[in-house]
Design a protein around this nucleic acid. Structure first.
Lengths: 197, 197
DNA sequence: TGAATCATGTAACTGGTTACATGATTGT
DNA sequence: ACAATCATGTAACCAGTTACATGATTCA
């Protein structure tokens, strides 16, 4: 039921489904991907349940659009969700599952390639987050004011992203060293074995 | 399709569904939760698809059990998955979505409570990971030998957990300071405003 | 005139959870 | 006798993805 709450959270002002998708891709996408088709279905369900109401209006650009607004019940649902405290237990990391089974290859160079690719993706994400952080702090770009409650809280999630990616890059670098050591040791062992025959 | 691959990965030796669930909860649970009912269905599907074969045998304890073993095709499927390189794009963090909208409360003490709870959960996980790491390195406990390929690769995911949780706890501590500062500033502002009236 | 963007949806499907049903064996 | 653990499954449901269908408006 989380997309429900996220959409309720984004609707501090009336927005269309299309617009909500754009907001998603700008700010939430880093920890919560969403498809347009899914968004439309959830908006309908929320309206059926009385958490949203909608009307159509002409768009400044393109065809008419359906615009959604929170009802009092919707706002209550959102606050109830927040009041429940942090929700855990859904975290899934496909790439960690892959790392877990990488011994299957029986070739550490494969592991090295895999982890290097991982590390590089983390690096790229880190520099994206850093760029956003610079723009945000300097007041450039479309980001909400850091002095406002919305801006402050949204920026907390970016800070988490920065911490997380720094940790992930460090992990990658450490692991790459460990693999290289193991590869070197394996080579030495092989030589020793040959010279002892 | 990831649970498929994970089960194929766990089946280096024949195991029953019940046993696979226990293996899950011991080691993979931290980045991939799974329900028994789901595991049983995927095992059936994998057998239908020719990636596994099974037979029943008496259990050392309890009723007969159905034991699954990888076929050559299953092992190939697993390797193909690993060879595709790291899979991204599914990461969802409900608690970060909650933080994102915590401004809705209009009361920073609520944010403080929420983030403190988060930080404490991260702390608890960190100390769990540290305990496992100690046991693993000292050879106590049910963990595979760190010198073996399986042990080495499985331990890499624990290292990621350690890095990730250290980062998360640091984030929590930083955010708690920031919130306390904002609360203090708000109080000062209120006093200043009163004294100027 | 044709590509890009704006805009809304439906249908079929896959992945995963929750609830339910059943029963054997072991240890207290 | 009873609880805990071992053991396997089905059915209904919810969440999310992919593929498809449709059409208006804007701008080069």
């Amino acid at each position: 039921m989380s997309l429900d709450h996220i959409l309720l959270g984004l609707l501090t002002k009336p927005h269309s489904g299309y617009e909500l998708k754009a907001m998603f891709d700008r700010s939430l996408n880093y920890f919560w991907p969403a498809e347009l088709s899914h968004i439309y279905r959830i908006l309908q369900r929320l309206e059926d349940g009385g958490d949203l109401q909608s009307w159509t209006e002409p768009s400044p650009k393109g065809p008419d659009r359906r615009v959604y607004e929170r009802t009092a019940a919707g706002r209550r649902r959102l606050r109830d969700w927040l009041a429940e405290g942090p929700a855990f237990g859904d975290e899934r990391f496909t790439y960690l599952a892959q790392v877990f089974f990488l011994g299957e290859h029986d070739d550490l160079r494969e592991t090295l390639r895999f982890v290097t690719e991982l590390r590089d993706v983390f690096k790229a994400r880190l520099s994206t987050y850093r760029r956003i952080d610079r723009e945000w702090r300097s007041g450039r770009g479309p980001y909400p004011d850091l002095a406002s409650p919305e801006g402050f809280h949204q920026h907390l999630t970016l800070q988490m992203g920065l911490h997380r990616m720094r940790a992930a890059v460090r992990w990658g670098n450490e692991v790459i060293s460990q693999i290289n050591e193991r590869i070197a040791n394996a080579a030495t062992d092989a030589r020793t074995e040959r010279s002892c025959q």
